[in-house]
């Protein structure tokens, strides 16, 4: 049985088809990269998989269960593009930020008990941030905050991890750390990961499946025929910003 199955899924927003008849299958432990220009449907498909949006046609199943029926959202961990759009002076510690994601596991009174505190610590160990557990979130660097958000997602031990352009605005060294941590989670913990990215060069080193998007359509196994030049061409065609590359 496939882990995640997307069958003939379409999604229209104001009569415009944003996702068009997408078929996709992932096994447990896959690391899939969604590549493509802005507006090609990658992020929308993530939101469909998450169950945040409902497909106008087709079905998405996680371990055979339609995602529309999943009530426990913590089974799927998601980092959105907007994750960094929080108030940087918000007076909360790393512990509190990670702990808040355990909301559904807290008892009648929504507080952290010792068992949950342990989960927080373990999730922070996973991203090598346990030493900064009592730091204020706003005092951390962008890369460190990104790792806190991975810990916040991992604290619920999700089966599927969805990352929507998590590396926008993160420097190169922090990107390496990020890939190392996600790689560990993917390989050692056998977690299935889907990551939307613009950087095909880097992500193709880590992902075992590349899915390319164009005008709402997805092209699985496109890693060979999909070149960086096509990608740049696409970006130019859609009149969007081009990511500068120094080694070109």
């Amino acid at each position: 049985m496939s882990f995640l199955k997307v069958e003939g899924v379409s999604f229209a927003y104001r009569k415009e088809r944003v996702v068009d008849d997408v078929n996709l299958e992932l096994k447990q432990g896959d690391f899939a990269a969604f590549i493509g220009p802005n507006g090609s449907g990658k992020s929308t498909l993530l939101k469909l998989i998450l169950g945040y949006l409902t497909p106008t046609r087709g079905e998405i199943t996680l371990k055979g269960q339609p995602v529309a029926e999943i009530m426990d959202w913590t089974r799927v961990g998601y980092i959105s593009q907007q994750v960094k759009d929080f108030n940087q002076s918000f007076p909360a510690t790393v512990r509190e930020i990670v702990g808040s994601n355990l909301y559904s596991k807290m008892g009648l009174v929504k507080f952290l008990n010792q068992e949950l505190e342990k989960k927080i610590y373990r999730a922070l160990e996973l991203v090598e941030m346990e030493d900064l557990i009592n730091r204020k979130i706003g005092n951390l660097s962008g890369g460190q905050q990104q790792r806190v958000f991975i810990a916040r997602l991992m604290v619920n031990d999700p089966e599927l991890i969805l990352l929507d352009e998590p590396l926008a605005g993160v420097d190169i060294r922090a990107q390496d750390d990020f890939y190392r941590i996600i790689g560990n989670i993917n390989q050692e913990m056998n977690k299935t990961v889907i990551m939307v990215s613009h950087d095909i060069q880097v992500i193709s080193k880590h992902a075992n499946k590349i899915v390319c998007f164009e005008d709402g359509r997805a092209y699985p196994h496109c890693s060979q025929e999909f070149s960086y030049d096509d990608y740049i061409h696409d970006l130019r065609r859609t009149n969007l910003r081009i990511i500068p590359r120094h080694d070109h």
Binding site: W73, F86, Y103, L108, F111
Partner: peptide, 23 residues
């Protein structure tokens, strides 16, 4: 406030994503 402490906390930190944690 005691009962929903972490729920209100999540709403304050990021209202748009609070549902992801089951709030």
């Amino acid at each position: 406030i005691l009962k929903y402490y972490y729920g209100f906390f999540y709403l304050a930190f990021n209202e748009n994503e609070a549902w992801l944690a089951g709030v």
